[in-house]
């Protein structure tokens, strides 16, 4: 019998450290599948974030480099500029990419760095214990918005993808989700496109992936996924933005 489905070569066979229902595992796997399909495992260099995915490199079986919180795109810029033949990507959460690393994100994008960014938006800080993220929805309760996010004191969910799409240096921005098998397949297509863009030297590409964090949404995995589908997508509509 032919084997038609298996573990990607670029994904290591180790137990996951992520919580039940977390979207990181899906995103890690999609990247690995794309790396295998594009046959770029020997060219790829990943830049890992600070956050729940800090040890993403434990799962990926290819070269990786750490960055300080928010500085992934600066580190990736350094790598790519001295190794233009390498395929360099950052994997960043909402706190990393949109809050503390907002300047690095905007400027790397604005320079049109030929990089790929996979941005996991789960509307909450996971590793530090469920604090408000820049992408936390209005009225969403977190450890630091115990009465719900109030725009008067905590501002609004920051739509970085729409913001980046305005920049001339940005080639491709798409928002996808992991809330259903069909959406996961669409997410994979977007990630693949973002890597193909880099291979073809098109410039900065970013894929925003809406992802569930059941632990800090205080929901069961199925309810958290439903929340992403029904609540998050209202604020963060899916589709190609640029």
């Amino acid at each position: 019998m032919d084997k038609i489905f298996g573990r990607p070569k670029s994904l290591r066979d180790i137990p996951t450290h992520y919580c039940s229902g977390c979207g990181h595992g899906i995103a890690h796997r999609l990247i690995s599948e794309v790396v295998d399909e594009l046959d770029i495992r020997e060219r790829i260099i990943g830049v890992a974030p600070i956050g729940c995915a800090v040890i993403a490199y434990d799962y990926w079986d290819f070269d990786c480099c750490e960055a300080a919180h928010g500085r992934a795109l600066a580190v990736a810029t350094g790598i790519k500029r001295v190794r233009p033949e390498a395929i360099v990507f950052t994997y960043q959460g909402d706190g990393d990419l949109v809050a503390i690393g907002c300047a690095e994100t905007i400027h790397a994008a604005n320079r049109g760095e030929n990089l790929t960014t996979v941005f996991i938006n789960n509307a909450v800080y996971g590793m530090t214990g469920g604090q408000m993220a820049p992408t936390t929805l209005l009225n969403q309760k977190t450890a630091t918005t115990p009465f719900g996010r109030d725009a008067k004191s905590a501002g609004y969910p920051l739509k970085i993808s729409e913001l980046l799409a305005q920049l001339s240096g940005v080639y491709y921005v798409e928002r996808v989700s992991t809330d259903s098998p069909v959406k996961v397949l669409a997410a994979k297509r977007a990630i693949k496109q973002a890597f193909i863009n880099q291979i073809e030297g098109k410039g900065f590409s970013l894929v925003e992936i809406l992802s569930a964090c059941p632990t800090y949404l205080g929901m069961k995995p199925t309810a958290a996924v439903k929340w992403v589908r029904e609540e998050m997508t209202k604020e963060f509509p899916l589709g190609k933005i640029k």
Partner: peptide, 22 residues
């Protein structure tokens, strides 16, 4: 490569990346 970075934070992280890449 010369890059005028957006900040000192970015500059040192760019150096980190370039150095990590050899």
């Amino acid at each position: 490569v010369f890059i005028q970075s957006e900040s000192e934070l970015a500059a040192i992280s760019m150096v980190m990346g370039a150095s990590a890449a050899g």
